[in-house]
């Protein structure tokens, strides 16, 4: 798994609570071959899982990606499956993480749902 900037994610990154940001960042890009082999279609979701956590994202085929690699726009969804270890340099490994990918019928959590288990509840 690698995470990084996209134009749409960038345009929305200062309006994180908006539906546009959700559409731009709660996405998982897969190579065309992987997309097919998981029997995905437009609008279908995938479940990504590793030792750090799991997250459901909307699947998207991406001709620029090699097989066995997924790309997620940087942000809160991608960070669910990023570990906290920095290897002594202050920066976590945001890229190059092992992750299991499977098709799923579970829904993608919106940004409020994503953080609902965390911190002080009763947000106004």
């Amino acid at each position: 798994m690698i995470s990084g900037r996209t134009l749409a994610q960038g345009a929305g990154c200062e309006s994180k609570m908006s539906p546009e940001f959700f559409k731009a960042a709660a996405v998982c890009h897969l190579s065309e071959k992987d997309f097919k082999s998981l029997e995905l279609s437009e609008g279908k979701n995938v479940l990504l899982k590793n030792e750090f956590g799991q997250v459901v994202l909307t699947a998207k085929a991406d001709a620029g990606l090699p097989d066995s690699m997924v790309f997620i726009p940087m942000g809160p969804w991608a960070n669910v499956i990023v570990g906290k270890e920095t290897g002594g340099c202050g920066t976590p490994h945001f890229k190059g993480l092992e992750v299991e990918v499977a098709a799923t019928n579970s829904p993608v959590l919106n940004i409020r749902e994503l953080f609902s288990g965390m911190g002080v509840s009763g947000y106004v």
Binding site: C13, K16, F52, G53, M74, G75, P76, N79, V80, I81, V82, G83, K84, P92, F115, M118, G119, V120
Partner: peptide, 16 residues
Amino acid sequence: ADAVSNFPRATAEALA
């Protein structure tokens, strides 16, 4: 900055 979104989930949880 939006630390909660941009830090790894387990790191951000410490802010809670």
